[in-house]
Design a protein around this nucleic acid. Structure first.
Length: 475
DNA sequence: TAGTGTTTATTTAGAT
DNA sequence: ATCTAAATAAACACTA
């Protein structure tokens, strides 16, 4: 089993992190208390439950408390809200740090965490389809590999509130997943559909004295644990789903230059591909072309297997078939429920360059502590998980994580060779995410927290042997 | 009227 | 092949 030391996870910036954590925590507390004074009544009967369980605060607190890294423990409660101000700062490395664009891919890094933290060359990332290396916050082209239920959970967790409004969920999703900012707003329908249909979510009616539209939503811990663990295990990337809004443009822009490794020139209708990226892309193409042995099935069930591999056009097929079924749909632009929040305070609490991967990981870990007074679900029990963390069965360990790094290494060395057209086009766009400058202002309130999924995988792995220690540390 | 919430139907992909 | 979960679409009702 591979492990990652804390130093590997946060090689620098821990002091800054601590300051930020303290500041942000104070702010959150302030806002929280202010908000609760007007909104506690609706759920006061279950206030304990809400605050301790449904808020999913425990997800944060549990996540990566390390037995071997006790000095980090006090940082963890705010881990997901605040990014270590290390090499990844600011919040969006790909967008915020132009230098990262030229950072070369270096196969064979010691760990996936380190690898991911590098925020490697986007173009190559796209070829490899590693979701952890797509900056979903700034890249509007690749659909995040998370189900709507998971997204909702994330939003709820990020809010640090016991309940959250629909508009806040929208807001959080669009703030943290650029794809949805540009996507057809029908995804909001799906969110609502999910809230209504999914047992995981409980509607909390708005009190009469509470202004605003619609109710609140909270998460049912009984279902949440199942949902999140299931999501974790099944976290599997669908084929690359490029935002349909950009497909034509990408195609148009790249068609003439898209053939031949030497034609990845910059300045394609505003798409600038820096020379270093071009060079690396070319190298990658050559390497990939020389090795066609990669078997996607081999990676099934692993993070690698979860990389979106374009198989034919399946990633777009659904849209197309539905389009044909329904005829051409008039483009609908968002009527902006996102911007019409009725509860600015609550939205304010949704600050955070939220690390959704970390949430999922922490959620998985959180299952262990999701007890309170609640019994563990049969699923968890029977898989030999112990509340308050005396031990965790390998069964419950995320599939594929144990050997993740080995596979990662293998995978990277073998190169991914599935070059469907969409992938290539997506690659070009990943090279230069859609301009988000106009939205920077809106994102200003986002705190930074980009603990990489792999980092948490690694740490979870390394800590898996003795979760009790981290629990004890927390308690 | 827009936003919210519910419900039904259909399609798709992955799992068994 | 079948089952299931998820995504998607759409119709409809309710409400601020």
């Amino acid at each position: 089993m591979l492990s990652v030391s804390c130093a590997d996870l946060w090689p620098e910036g821990s002091v800054a992190l601590e300051e930020e954590v303290v500041t942000a925590a104070a702010k959150a507390e302030e806002l929280d208390s202010a908000h609760n004074t007007s909104s506690t009544s609706s759920c006061c009967s279950s206030v304990n439950l809400d605050d301790s369980l449904t808020s999913l605060q425990w997800l944060q607190e549990f996540s990566i408390l390390g037995a071997n890294v006790p000095q980090q423990a006090h940082h963890q409660p705010h881990l997901f809200g605040h990014q270590p101000l290390g090499s990844d700062a600011p919040a969006s490395p790909l967008a915020g740090d132009p230098a990262s664009f030229g950072m070369p891919l270096t196969p064979g890094k010691p760990t996936a965490a380190a690898y991911s933290r590098m925020q490697t060359l986007p173009s190559i990332v796209a070829y490899g389809h590693c979701p952890d290396e797509v900056d979903y916050k700034t890249n509007p082209h690749i659909k995040p590999p998370y189900s709507y239920a998971i997204l909702i959970c994330m939003a709820m967790q990020a809010s640090k509130k016991s309940k959250i409004t629909l508009s806040c969920i929208y807001k959080w999703i669009t703030d943290n997943f650029c794809y949805y900012r540009h996507a057809d707003p029908t995804w909001q329908n799906s969110i609502r559909h999910n809230l209504s249909l999914n047992k995981c979510f409980i509607k909390v009616p708005r009190q009469k004295d509470e202004p605003g539209k619609g109710g609140f939503w909270k998460i049912d811990p009984q279902y949440a644990e199942r949902l999140l663990s299931g999501a974790y295990k099944k976290r599997r990337m669908p084929p690359v789903q490029i935002n349909p809004a950009f497909q034509n443009r990408v195609r148009t822009n790249l068609q003439p230059q898209s053939r031949g490794p030497s034609n990845h020139t910059g300045g394609l209708n505003g798409l600038f591909v820096n020379p270093e990226s071009q060079r690396l892309l070319q190298e990658f193409e050559e390497a990939s072309g020389a090795d066609q042995n990669w078997d996607p099935h081999l990676a099934e069930g692993t993070m690698l297997g979860s990389w979106p591999v374009v198989r034919g056009r399946s990633g777009l097929k659904r849209k197309q078939s539905q389009g044909s079924r329904n005829g051409i749909k008039a483009p609908r632009r968002s009527s902006s429920p996102l911007l019409s929040t009725d509860d600015p305070k609550e939205i304010g609490l949704l600050k955070g360059d939220f690390d959704w991967d970390a949430l999922l990981d922490s959620a998985l870990s959180g299952e262990l502590s999701l007890d309170g007074e609640e019994p563990l679900s049969p699923i968890i029990k029977e898989e030999d998980l112990t509340v308050r963390g005396t031990h965790m069965s390998p069964i419950e360990a995320p599939a594929g994580t144990t050997d993740l790094h080995v596979l990662m290494e293998t995978q990277r060395n073998n190169d991914v060779t599935d070059f469907a057209e969409e992938t290539f086009l997506a690659t070009a766009f990943l090279e230069n995410p859609w301009p988000e400058e106009e939205e920077q202002g809106r994102n200003d309130f986002l705190c930074s927290s980009t603990v990489n999924l792999d980092q948490l995988f690694d740490l979870g792995d390394s800590l898996g042997g003795d979760p009790s220690t981290r629990i004890d540390t927390l308690l």
